[in-house]
Amino acid sequence: MRELGGEILVAIVGLSGGFAVGSAFVALLIVLDLIPRLVQLTRAYRRSAIFESALLAGVIGFNCADLFDWRLSLGKGWLVAPAVFQGVFVGMLAAALTEVLNVIPIVAKRLRLNRYLLLLLLAMVLGKVAGSLADWLLFQPMHD
């Protein structure tokens, strides 16, 4: 009897934990204005269900694959798709984060570099790409 109570409690804690994580996940993405930008890019106004379904499918799918160890034995070539999309996603997330924090406008204004905004942006982009490449190609293998 005590065992069953414990198991029910585990299930309840699990459900609530998932609940908190799921809603926090969406809240973060919404604060970062990532999706409105994508909506504008694709001109898919008033079609929020499409974007919601993508988020939901991605989170649930990868969550289950992660926790329940779902393995697919695909060829290495298939890695290109997740690699490209995940790279772009992280890039957009990073850009959105700096935008929310107003880093670039403030720096540009303080240093009176308003005219060179594009150069500043380019510096950041190149820095991120160089940093990522250096990290993966030079530094990461040493930890193994």
């Binding site: 999706i35 993508a54 991605g58 969550n63 694959a65 798709a81 997740p82």
Partner: peptide, 17 residues
């Protein structure tokens, strides 16, 4: 964009874990 959000959010949840 759908694929971007799909793979991106999937990786984000795994990153979080």
């Amino acid at each position: 964009a759908w694929l971007l959000l799909f793979f991106g959010s999937g990786m984000a949840i795994m990153n979080f874990h």
